[in-house]
């Protein structure tokens, strides 16, 4: 009952926050549908280009709707002392975090699903050849990105800085997935970008790969869980002078 309760709380507050919705839903959905539609109409190999871009855009959705939303809401609730209040309830720390993260993961999956249908209709992007693999990649990718986002909040000093701290992750994910246009990169940078969890999801979705993405996401999961356990902060840093 308790995990479900935080899940409902997270989801309910997500859809109430109009400002957040623009950033975490409207913009990414607009881009995820708009870019492939644009490609379909301007590129010579319309459908192929649209498909290429759409698969890359999934990485961007993971970076914005999953990662940035999690980073922003968790640091905000941490700084507003809402997380601290949640810890006075019967919920365990794990349930509090899992509930919040599961809400974000659901929203991500819904948005990707919606975009997949929209680009099929509007840009002729074929539906996933292997739907279970596609779904598994998106869900797992969202879970890993949400987990990493929660861990990442430890380095963010104040809630006002959370969007700025999430920005580099968005840029790396976008460049890595090739949706920022052709950017000449040295090979070591290319290799590094390919190690991002978003790249693993794009690989699975694009090329139907399984083994490499599974390994990649497993390693990132371990990194996320270990950093959460070591460094996650439930309340803002306090000065040593408070009692």
């Amino acid at each position: 009952m308790t995990f479900a309760a935080t899940y409902r709380l997270g989801t309910r507050l997500f859809w109430r926050d109009r400002g957040m919705l623009v950033g975490s839903v409207v913009t990414p959905v607009g881009l995820t549908i708009g870019m492939p539609v644009l490609m379909r109409n301007v590129a010579p190999e319309g459908v192929a280009a649209a498909t290429q871009v759409f698969h890359g855009m999934i990485a961007v959705v993971l970076a914005i709707t999953t990662f940035m939303t999690t980073v922003v809401t968790l640091t905000m609730r941490r700084d507003q002392l809402v997380l601290k209040r949640l810890r006075t309830t019967e919920l365990t720390d794990g349930q509090i975090l899992a509930g919040q993260l599961a809400g974000v993961v659901t929203q991500t999956v819904l948005l990707v699903g919606l975009s997949t249908l929209a680009v099929r209709v509007l840009a002729g992007v074929p539906l996933p050849a292997n739907p279970p693999l596609f779904a598994a990649a998106v869900v797992t990718g969202a879970v890993v990105m949400a987990l990493l986002a929660a861990a990442y909040t430890a380095v963010i000093p104040r809630a006002e800085l959370s969007a700025a701290f999430a920005m580099p992750v968005f840029l790396l994910a976008g460049v890595g997935a090739g949706v920022m246009g052709p950017i000449p990169l040295p090979s070591f940078a290319r290799t590094a970008l390919d190690l991002l969890p978003t790249a693993a999801v794009a690989d699975a979705v694009r090329h139907g790969e399984v083994l490499a993405p599974v390994l990649n996401l497993a390693v990132w999961t371990v990194i996320g869980v270990v950093s959460l356990r070591l460094w996650f902060r439930w309340e803002p840093r306090r000065s040593s002078s408070t009692s």
């Binding site: 009952m1 309760a5 109430r16 926050d17 002392l81 809402v82 209040r85 006075t88 309830t89 019967e90």
Partner: peptide, 30 residues
């Protein structure tokens, strides 16, 4: 926790929820 109540000196609320909604959400956790 099942047998204690805690009123912290400082703890946050969700400012846009009403008093009733806040209590309802917290009842969900109890």
């Amino acid at each position: 926790r099942r047998r204690t109540g805690i009123m912290l000196q400082e703890a946050g609320f969700f400012p846009d929820l009403t008093v009733r909604q806040t209590v309802d959400i917290w009842r969900d956790f109890t």
